[in-house]
Every structure is written in structure tokens, then in C-alpha cells.
Design a protein around this nucleic acid. Structure first.
Lengths: 335, 335
DNA sequence: CTGAAAGCGCTTACAG
DNA sequence: CTGAAAGCGCTTACAG
């Protein structure tokens, strides 16, 4: 297969002009059906491959999107955002777009250096994943291409973001526990750590409020310090019948801790998580948890970018995508 | 920031030609140092962004590489290849290249459809990750751009591949067990399942041979059927003092199984894994295992592509990259 | 239905 | 040290 076959080559071979080739290959008006078929056949036969760069230059579109993940979210055990990238990549494919991954180094983030792919016009827009430094967000706002933030928002800036509905996810989960007869329900997570955890806590709190259950101070249990480092969990003296954990990993740790102390899950006490990550299937019993709808979030993010590409002034603000409760064995009906 | 600033705009502003701008911005010969500095300053000030597509069209290079992962390796729990993509992406960055992820759907693999990014000339070469159908490999060989296979090889074809050294990894691990006094050593894995597992088994076998230890049939224990589905592990009657597992997940399952039967690790018996995946840190005690050197494998793969780009006839064949043994608590010295 | 002309934004010889 | 000309491979009006 020779790679240097151009439309002109096909044109010469058929004794027509390259304009006609372009029209035929792009299924545009103005070429007879017969000629069109012939052109397509010859193109195939000659091993013709379309040169996107020529089109890009004409149109000013690259048909690529930049997906940016800050370096600190890319450890060996953290595949959450990579998973997102993979889904985004699939969605982009359906728009005939491609995704370019850009790991944002801590250095570039600190020095407010925008991604190289921006300065080289390699992409038509960006999706930024995860929490990003405020100053850097201000820098991003200067970008004159569509930008969507996925799984992050900040009130400081006018940004469009697509988020998982932390609040309602935990709200519904807590309702579910209450329907199963639980009243002594604890929340595990540091409310001052991230706004996701804060929202999850508030969902739990709203459910308690609606059911006239008092929020007890000792039932809000820290799992990490304010810098995000995990600390030992202190099980309260007055044992709850259920624990709402801010994520699956914490639920996993908690269950191990409880079992070491001879407390059986779910017989003696129920535990629920959030994320439906690998940890949710590693506990015995497996965790009832909230599955983040990454697929829907990816679809919505890309759709927004495409709309903004057509209409740059379009604003979306914050868009919340509901997750689904995955029912497994870690909750007991105690009615 | 206006995006439509071109070299010509800078040229007009400074009363020089766009050729001079090009030379200055690319640090080429033929522009006085003084003018060069001035041009760079004005470019910065005008918010100039380089248009890669124009360069690509001239040179026939896209400065992008396609990273292809078959769909079946992309489940929620399988982040191994995504991890690779991330590392590759970083390495590519140092070459001023970008990586475009392409999930190869089962349908396209079955129908021998090459990635769209190939037919659109969006990339200068490909790195294929993981095992791929023979017929599809034959199709890939027709690609007239550099191709490297990462973590896969087949004798059927003349392909260049970068592989983890399964053989020597397990060989050294088994030697390590023997140095610690173990003689009754079992291997856990189905030798007929994949060639990686086969090679790991052979490494184990070589170590036994060198130490004049007989290979016992009942010490080669199946963990899955030939289609790769996990089956129950049968612990042999004559209990080994150590188990060499073909990967960490299997080691994790084995340890759980042993502990359920009242056998303590490493007190009663030692267990080692392979991969240094998340499972290696989830066991109690954590697993002594072989860490695949993904970083080095990524570096080598990209380097090969770059060399092949300069010299298309260059052949590398199979390149093995050694992993490192990570020593943790799952092995006991029984001397 | 078909095509000649111009242009997208660079870079590469080559001439001065 | 500086620049005019040509070309990379398409597409978009416009003319016939």
C-alpha cells in the first residue's frame, strides 16, 4: 500500500478533476451516481488514504479533542480518570473525533503553562478531568476553544462542568438504609476535605432531616485529614447499625476493621460505599454502593463540546448526572 | 486571545517576510539574534499559536502516534493497558509527539478494519497493546507506517515487539524461593492458556531443573480453563512449602483460599505473584511479586517507533525488558 | 453534472 | 542576513 496517493492521482487516473474526486469521496452533490461509485472503487484499489491535515488547515478544525488529567491523579492504583478517558475516546469516535491524552504535570500546573497541544492547535477543545488549581482554571478560561470540566467545579469561575450527583446519590442511599429499618446511621468521611465528600455528606444529612433523625456529632467519623491522607477510623462507642462511607475504599477499610473487632457485616452492622470501584467487589460480602454513570457523563461532556464548537457562546454551567445504586450483600434489613 | 494570528500577521506587523518569522520561531539559521528575539516577543504578545497542520501537510508527519487497545482488555477492572497508554503518552511528550488512543472494537477486529486514524493519516505510526487476532496482525502488516507490538508477540508474523521478560522474572523468583530453603514448590496457572503464562511456567521449570528438583505433575495447578475463565484451585494433598502464581490476582485468590483452610501465609507456606498489581497490596501479608517495568517498556517502544520513522527498514524482532522483584512479606525463609 | 482558480498556514530550496 | 516563489492536499465558492 503506497501512502502517497492523493485525490489528484485518482483524478488523473480517471481523467477528471480533483474537485470531482473530493465531492465523490465526501458524498456531496454534483457528481453522477455512476461516477461516484467508480471513483470510490478506484480510490479503494489505489489504497487512497484521506489526508486530514489538508482538511484541518482549510477548516481550522483538527477533529481532535484534548483530554487533560493532572499528574497527581495518575498513580498506578488510580485508574478512575483513565477509565473516563477511555469512555470519552469511544464517544469521540462516534463524532469522528479523536482524543489526545495530556497528563498535566505539577510543574506546568504551578507555572500556569497551558498544554502544548493547545499552543500547537492540535485540538479543537478540551475536557479537563478532576480538581485543578484555581489559578490554573483562570488560565484555562483564556483558551478560545470550548472547554468542559469533568468531575470538578468551582464557584470562583464561570465554567461549564459535568458532575456526578454526589448529593442525591448518598441521599437515596441513606433513604434506602432507613427503609430497611436503620436509624442509627453514621457517615464516614472528612467534610472539610473535598467538595465531593461535602456534597455526599449533605445528601446523607438531608435524608436524616427528612426522616426526623438527629445528626449526632460522633456519627460523623473522619477517615482522613484535610490534606487527604488516610487516618485510623474511630468506631463510635454507641455502635451504629449502618455506616455510609464516602467511597468504596474507605468502606473496604472499615469492613476489615470491623471484622477484626469481631463485628460481622451485614449481620451486626450494614456498610455502604460510593463509586462502585474495584474495592466494592473485594469485600466479603460485596458492597452495596453507588455507581457513577461515567458513560453518560462522557456522552454529555462530548455533546457539550460539540455544541460549543458550533455555538461558542453557549453556556451550560453545572450539569449533574445521577448515579445508580448497585445492590449487593452489605446491607441487612433490620425491620 | 485571538486564535487566528498567523506568521504572516506577525510579519506584517514587523515589516518583514513570513519566511523570516518561520526561521526565527523555529530557531533556524539566517536571522539576526536581535530580530529573532523581537519576533518571539511580538509572537507572544499577539497570542500567536503554531498551526501544526500546515507543518504536517508540508512534511507528511502528524506528530501523533496511535495507541491501539483491543476492546476486550478495557473492562472497568482492567487498567493495565490504560496505565501503559498513560506512560506512553508521557514519553511521547518528550519527543513533541502526542498519543491518540484507539479502542479496537471486537467488530473491527473480526472484520479486519484498520483504525480510522490510519485511514485519515492522523498518526505517523502505531503501538498495539496486548494480544491480537492472527488475521488482524496480517492486516496490520500492510500498514506502511512504523508499528510496534507491546506485550504481545506471535511467531506467525515478522513483527517487532516489546515484551516483559516473563521467563526470567519467574526464573529469578523461583531461584529466590530455593535460596530461602524451599524445595516443594508448586506453580499455579494453566500452561495452555496464554504464551505469557507458558513462559512464566518455563522460567519456573528452568529454575527447578538447574537445582535438580523434579517437576511433579500435581504441583502444576490449573487456575483457569483454556478460555481463560477462572476455576477453583485444587490444593495438592502433599502440601508444597511455596506457590509460584502466574499473576497477583491468582495469588490473592489462593491466599484467601489457604487462609480459609487454616493455612497461614507465610508461616505455613509461602506465596509469590507476578505483575505488582493492586492485588499485591490487598493480601495480608502483602505479596512478594515481580514488577513489570512498564516505564522502560514504554520508553523502548516509542524509541523504536522514532527510529523506524527515520529508517523504515529497521527491524527489531522481539525485545525483552526485565522486571524487578518486589520483596514483601509473603515469603518465609525455611532454612 | 463538471472543473479552473484561489486559499488554508506553513517550510523548503534558491536567489540576492 | 533576508525574502519571493512554489508547493504540501485538500475544499469552497463560482462559472460553465
Amino acid at each position: 500500500m503506497k501512502s502517497n496517493v492523493t485525490m489528484r492521482d485518482i483524478a488523473e487516473r480517471l481523467g477528471v478533476s480533483s474537485v470531482t474526486i473530493s465531492k465523490a469521496l465526501n458524498d456531496k452533490e454534483g457528481v453522477s451516481e455512476e461516477l461516484k461509485e467508480k471513483i470510490k472503487a478506484v480510490a479503494e484499489e489505489m489504497g487512497y488514504r484521506f489526508n486530514t491535515h489538508a482538511k484541518s488547515m482549510k477548516e481550522g478544525l483538527s477533529y481532535n479533542l484534548g483530554i487533560v488529567i493532572p499528574e497527581r491523579f495518575t498513580g498506578t492504583t488510580q485508574s478512575f480518570y483513565l477509565q473516563f478517558y477511555q469512555l470519552l475516546s469511544k464517544v469521540l469516535d462516534s463524532y469522528h473525533y479523536s482524543g489526545i491524552l495530556n497528563i498535566l504535570s505539577q510543574e506546568d500546573e504551578d507555572n500556569l503553562v497551558l498544554p502544548r497541544i493547545y499552543n500547537e492547535k492540535k485540538v479543537d477543545g478540551f475536557i479537563f478531568l478532576g480538581q485543578i488549581d484555581k489559578k490554573y482554571v483562570e488560565e484555562i478560561e483564556k483558551i478560545d476553544s470550548p472547554v468542559i470540566f469533568l468531575d470538578f467545579y468551582t464557584d470562583q469561575n464561570e465554567i461549564d462542568s459535568v458532575l456526578t450527583d454526589n448529593f442525591y446519590g448518598v441521599y437515596e442511599m441513606t433513604n434506602y438504609l432507613i427503609r430497611n429499618g436503620h436509624k442509627k446511621i453514621a457517615f464516614v468521611g472528612n467534610v472539610y476535605s473535598t467538595s465531593s465528600i461535602q456534597d455526599r455528606f449533605l445528601g446523607y444529612f438531608k435524608s436524616l432531616l427528612e426522616h426526623r433523625i438527629n445528626l449526632k456529632d460522633e456519627y460523623v467519623i473522619k477517615d482522613r485529614d484535610e490534606l487527604g491522607r488516610y487516618i485510623d477510623i474511630n468506631v463510635p462507642e454507641d455502635m451504629p447499625t449502618a455506616f455510609v462511607c464516602n467511597n468504596d475504599e474507605v468502606a473496604y477499610n472499615l469492613i476489615n476493621l470491623l471484622q477484626k473487632n469481631g463485628i460481622q457485616v451485614p449481620e451486626d452492622c450494614s456498610v455502604v460505599g460510593f463509586d462502585n470501584s474495584i474495592y466494592a467487589t473485594l469485600t466479603e460480602p460485596p458492597l452495596t454502593t453507588v455507581e457513577v454513570d461515567m458513560e453518560e457523563m462522557s456522552k454529555v461532556s462530548v455533546k457539550f463540546i460539540m455544541e460549543k464548537l458550533k455555538n461558542p457562546d453557549k453556556k451550560y454551567g453545572r450539569t449533574f448526572i445521577k448515579g445508580n445504586i448497585i445492590y449487593r450483600g452489605s446491607v441487612k434489613n433490620i425491620k
